[in-house]
C-alpha cells in the first residue's frame, strides 16, 4: 500500500453530493425519487434498535415493518466525476432521528406537499427552517390537479419569500427535474450573495 495514511481516497471514484426529498407520509417522496433517478430506486432497511428506540416505541408502526425503517434513494450521474444522490426521508415523525444524519452534508432539500393535506408536511418545513438547511417546496397535485395557485399555498405553509413554491407532479420526470433545478437556482442565488 502506498502512503502512510490508510487509503482514504480513490482518485477514480466520482465526487458525490446529495439532496433530500422530504415531506409527510404518502406525499409522493418515493415516487419522485423514482421519477428522476437513472436507476430503479434502491432501498435499505435499518434495524430500529440500532437507533436506540425501545421496543415500546414500535407500537403502531405498520405491522410488517415493525422492526426496521426503510430508506429509499436514487442516483443521477451529473458528469463522469460527479454523482447526485436523492434520499427520500422516512415520513413518520418517529423516524426523525434519522433525518439529522441524512441532512448532514446535503446540498439542500425538496419538501413535497400533498395539495389535499398540506399540514402533513408542516413538520418537515420546520425541520429544515430550524436547521438553516435550504429547501424548495414542491406541491404534488396528485390527480394532476392544481386547485390553488402557488401563492395561496405559500401563505398556507407560511414559508418565507426566498423559498420557492412550485407546482409539480411527482410521477413526471421533467416536473421533478424542474423542482430540483429550482432548488439549485435558489442555492446558486444564495451563494452569489455570500
Amino acid at each position: 500500500m502506498a502512503g502512510s495514511d490508510v487509503a482514504t481516497d480513490a482518485s477514480s471514484a466520482p465526487d458525490t453530493v446529495k439532496i433530500l426529498i422530504a415531506g409527510g407520509f404518502g406525499v409522493g417522496k418515493t415516487t419522485m425519487v423514482g421519477s428522476v433517478s437513472e436507476i430503479a430506486p434502491l432501498r435499505t432497511e435499518e434495524p430500529l434498535t440500532m437507533a436506540g428506540l425501545g421496543v415500546d416505541d414500535l407500537d403502531g408502526i405498520e405491522e410488517k415493518r415493525a422492526t426496521t425503517v426503510a430508506l429509499d434513494f436514487g442516483r443521477i450521474t451529473i458528469s463522469r466525476d460527479l454523482v447526485l444522490y436523492l434520499f427520500g426521508t422516512p415520513g413518520q415523525q418517529r423516524f426523525w432521528f434519522m433525518w439529522n444524519d441524512l441532512a448532514l452534508g446535503a446540498l439542500g432539500a425538496v419538501v413535497l406537499v400533498d395539495v389535499r393535506r398540506p399540514e402533513s408536511s408542516f413538520a418537515a418545513i420546520d425541520f429544515f427552517e430550524r436547521r438553516g438547511i435550504p429547501f424548495v417546496v414542491g406541491v404534488n397535485g396528485f390527480h394532476g390537479d392544481h386547485p390553488y395557485p402557488p401563492e395561496d399555498i405559500r401563505d398556507a405553509l407560511a414559508v418565507p419569500e426566498h423559498v420557492q413554491v412550485l407546482l409539480c407532479d411527482a410521477r413526471e420526470r421533467e416536473s421533478c427535474r424542474d423542482v430540483l433545478i429550482a432548488l439549485l437556482d435558489q442555492l446558486i442565488a444564495t451563494a452569489v450573495q455570500t
Binding site: A7, T8, D9, A10, A13, D15, T16, V17, K18, I76, T77, I78, S79, L82, L84, G105, A106, L107, G132, P134, R177, L180, I181, L184, D185, L187, I188, T190, A191, V192, T194
Partner: peptide
C-alpha cells in the same frame, strides 16, 4: 479505499459545484 463526499459548507458555498449540478440537471 474510501472517498468522502464533497464537503457542503453553508457559510462558504462552492458556487462551481452548484453550477455543475445545475447544468447536469
Amino acid at each position: 479505499t474510501v472517498r468522502p463526499p464533497r464537503l457542503v459548507s453553508r457559510t462558504t458555498p462552492d458556487l462551481d459545484l452548484l453550477k455543475k449540478v445545475r447544468d447536469g440537471l
